[in-house]
């Protein structure tokens, strides 16, 4: 089910402001790709173009192409809703639905897309929660509200919710930035397990995290404030961290700026 993403000459605009310029990259299936770079360099913006979530913001638009295997996500007639069904997303702050129980949170995506059948849903809840390493902690209180869990558990609940719809790609926008180190570790372990089934893209401000979880790393930067963000280089994580081609990457990774 994991699919490859091919991005070609992608520009992202907010109204007339060019936020990201000229990104071309390939995201390999069944691997973790990390996006690193200073704040405001457009990595989150770029991430959101991979499932057309940027369109939620008025005035946002893109030029260029994003291919999910053979499907051009921006071709005419492609429904952003169906794109998001195959490219899931986990956000910076855990955001379980406050009116729903743990159980209902996990199957929210399925139920809102018309899946019925108690048995299928029960099964999906168990598989997804197990997939998100949360099953043992919550199996006795599935009917309790999801908002009652701890921050780290909530974030894993959100991951369970995202993988319950069986997407091909999972985008994670700084999924650990609101969590403590223990919860962060739990999420990182989870990412490692999930990559056997999904294509994962993770945005992080934490370079150790990028080094720990990712197979490939992309470094984004902007030439100056007010200029659009650009992809500086992408490569195997080992290589980016030990032997980057670009000077800017080395400066950033070694902590000389950013």
């Amino acid at each position: 089910m994991a699919k490859r993403i091919d991005v070609k000459d992608l520009n992202v605009y907010y109204s007339s402001f060019k936020a990201v310029e000229d990104v071309t990259m390939t995201v390999e299936p069944r691997s973790v790709t990390a996006f690193i770079g200073p704040s405001g360099c457009g990595k989150s913006t770029f991430l959101r173009t991979l499932n057309r979530m940027h369109e939620v913001i008025p005035g946002a638009r893109v030029e260029g192409s994003v291919m999910l295997d053979d499907l051009d996500l921006y071709a005419k007639g492609v429904d952003p809703v169906s794109v998001r069904r195959s490219v899931g997303m986990v956000f910076q702050r855990p955001n379980p639905f406050p009116t729903m129980s743990i159980y209902d949170n996990v199957i929210a995506g399925l139920r809102l897309n018309g899946v019925k059948g108690r048995k299928d849903l029960d099964e999906a809840v168990e598989t997804s929660l197990k997939g998100a390493n949360l099953w043992n902690e919550v199996k006795d209180r599935l009917k309790k509200p999801g908002a009652g869990l701890s921050g780290g558990q909530q974030q894993r609940l959100c991951i369970a919710r995202a993988i319950a719809v069986r997407p091909q790609v999972l985008l994670m926008d700084e999924p650990c930035s609101a969590l403590d180190p223990i919860s962060t570790l739990a999420i990182e372990d989870l990412v490692n397990e999930l990559k056997s089934d999904f294509t994962i893209v993770i945005v992080t401000h934490n370079m150790q995290q990028a080094a720990r979880v990712s197979d490939r790393t992309a470094f984004f930067n902007l030439a100056a404030t007010g200029k659009p963000g650009r992809l500086v280089e992408i490569g195997d994580t080992q290589k980016i961290f030990n032997n980057p081609i670009e000077r800017a990457t080395e400066d950033y990774i070694s902590g000389r700026f950013g």
Partner: peptide, 16 residues
Amino acid sequence: ELREASYALGVSKWRT
């Protein structure tokens, strides 16, 4: 964030 969470699950705007 709740709206975005729902959109990201492939739920249409009206159902959200």
